[in-house]
Simulated assay, not measured.
Amino acid sequence: MMKSPLLDSMQEAFKLVKAGQLGEATATIQRALGGKASAKDDTIIEGEVLHKTHTQAPPQQPATPTLTPSTEPKHGANKLNHLFKTFAKTSTVTPQPIPNNAQFITKTFSNQYGSRDYKLYIPSTYGSKPVPLVIMLHGCTQSSDDFANGTQMNALAEQHQVLIAYPEQSAQANAQRCWSWFKPQDQTHNQGEPSIIAGITQAIMSEYQVDKKRVYIAGLSAGGAMSAIMAALYPDLYSAVGIHSGLAFGSAHDLPSALMAMNLGAKPIHKPNQFVPLIIFQGDLDKTVSLRNAETLFEQAKTLYQQRDEYFELTTQDYHPSNSHAYTRTVLKNSKERHELEYWTIHGAGHAWSGGDRSGSYTDPKGPNASWEMLRFFLHHTL
Rank of each mutant, 00 (worst) to 15 (best):
S9W: 05
Q112G: 13
G23E: 11
T66G: 02
I243F: 02
S124T: 06
Q209F: 12
T315M: 13
Y113K: 06
K213R: 14
F298Q: 12
K129T: 13
W353L: 07
A25T: 01
K302W: 10
L379E: 01
Q103G: 05
E24G: 10
G350V: 01
Y305V: 04
P235R: 08
F109N: 04
F109L: 10
I44Q: 04
L379P: 01
I229A: 14
N111K: 13
Q30Y: 15
P167R: 03
A175V: 15
G35Q: 14
Q187E: 15
F14T: 06
T53C: 09
Y343A: 09
A19L: 04
Q209T: 14
L314I: 14
A228I: 13
K107A: 10
M260S: 11
G219E: 07
A171F: 05
A165V: 05
Q96L: 15
H320M: 12
K212P: 05
Q274W: 02
L120H: 04
S257M: 09
R376P: 00
E373D: 11
D211E: 13
T125S: 14
A203P: 04
Y311C: 06
L285N: 12
P194C: 11
M205L: 07
S227T: 06
N323P: 09
S4M: 13
F298R: 06
S144H: 00
P59S: 07
Y234T: 00
L264W: 00
M226S: 06
T108D: 12
P130M: 07
S227H: 02
K287T: 12
D364C: 01
Y319K: 04
K271D: 08
D286I: 06
K79D: 09
T125G: 08
S245M: 01
K15T: 03
L255S: 11
E373K: 04
I200V: 11
T66L: 08
S221G: 09
G223P: 07
L233D: 03
S38V: 08
D236F: 03
P256L: 11
Q142P: 00
F84C: 12
E12W: 11
P58F: 00
A266I: 02
S124N: 04
M230G: 04
T28I: 08
E48A: 12
S128A: 13
L33S: 12
Y305M: 06
K52H: 07
E24W: 02
H347T: 10
A175K: 14
S290I: 05
S257V: 06
N111A: 13
Y113C: 07
I98C: 03
H339Y: 08
L375E: 00
N334M: 06
G47E: 11
P99F: 13
R292Y: 10
V134E: 02
G20P: 00
G219A: 07
P95G: 06
W372M: 00
S128H: 14
Q11V: 12
Y208K: 13
Y343S: 09
S290T: 11
N78V: 13
Q60M: 13
G265S: 01
T71N: 03
A102E: 10
R116L: 15
R177H: 14
A326I: 05
E158L: 00
D357Y: 01
S290C: 08
R308Y: 03
H75I: 14
S221P: 02
A102D: 05
F378R: 05
V131A: 08
